[in-house]
């Protein structure tokens, strides 16, 4: 219909193509009808241009008054806010084009991402760690044996402790080199005691305090550069025959 009117207004009858004549045929089959239509449409256009009507000012005043009465409360404080809301959240636009939602999405992304950069790696507390509970399946036979050996060993230990004489500590003059129980250098002391035990088959531990109490009480000195000689002159010059225990020790050692 719109096309038909456009053709009639814009073209003359003799300019029409076959298709156009066919299209407008129902409304204007002949040239005379075509001209009638053309005249009518052109006159109506002129009338529309001439007739620019405006309602009276009183009508608008009356409506303004009515509007203010109806929206009195909103009109007092809401106009500015309404403008902001319309600007930020225009309902006619799709959701992703609404500024308020865009800003909210940006803030959400920032809130989610920024803490990741500021996060410190803290040692995890025991409560946060996974617990690995390994259940040992108990073997009854092994358990019984263990119990037996543990009771036996504890009894033996008690007996040994009761049998062993109490170790007395003799005061040693302080010279910057403190030893509780010293008769010879530490390494030698241990070595000698182990060897002597093995050789003699003794169960008790060897102590230089028992063997040579004078030696133990003396201050340790060594003026010799290689440190072979230990103790003072009196002790080193003592005959081995006078000290049979020491002779046995030396024999077993070397």
């Amino acid at each position: 219909m719109e096309n038909v009117e456009e053709i009639i207004v814009k073209k003359n009858y003799h300019e029409l193509s076959g298709d156009e004549r066919e299209l407008i045929g129902e409304l204007a089959g002949t040239e005379e009808e075509f001209e009638q239509m053309k005249f009518l449409f052109s006159q109506m256009e002129m009338m529309k241009d001439r007739e620019v009507l405006e309602p009276r000012a009183e009508t608008k005043h009356s409506l303004d008054h009515l509007f203010q009465e109806t929206h009195q409360q909103k009109a007092r404080g809401g106009i500015w806010l309404n403008s902001v809301l319309v600007a930020l959240y225009p309902v006619e636009r799709p959701a992703y084009k609404r500024p308020l939602l865009q800003v909210a999405a940006a803030v959400l992304v920032i809130l989610l991402v920024v803490p990741l950069f500021n996060q410190r790696i803290e040692p995890s507390t025991p409560a946060q760690l996974a617990k690995n509970e390994i259940k040992q399946e108990s073997d009854p036979i092994v358990d019984e044996k263990k119990e037996e050996t543990s009771t036996e060993s504890s009894e033996q230990l008690k007996e040994q402790q009761a049998a062993a004489p109490p170790v007395t500590k003799e005061p040693v003059p302080h010279n910057g080199f403190v030893r509780d129980d010293l008769s010879m250098p530490i390494a030698i002391d241990k070595f000698v005691s182990a060897e002597s035990d093995a050789a003699v088959g003794a169960t008790s531990t060897f102590s230089i305090v028992d063997v040579a109490p004078e030696m133990a009480s003396t201050e340790i000195k060594s003026d010799h550069p290689d440190g072979v000689f230990v103790g003072d002159h009196m002790l080193t010059s003592m005959s081995a025959a006078d000290q049979p225990e020491l002779l046995d020790l030396l024999t077993a050692t070397f």
Partner: peptide, 16 residues
């Protein structure tokens, strides 16, 4: 027109 009606509904006289 529709956006104006929304504003008008909220009391925007300039929309009216």
């Amino acid at each position: 027109d529709e956006a104006l009606m929304r504003s008008m509904r909220n009391g925007d006289q300039r929309a009216f």
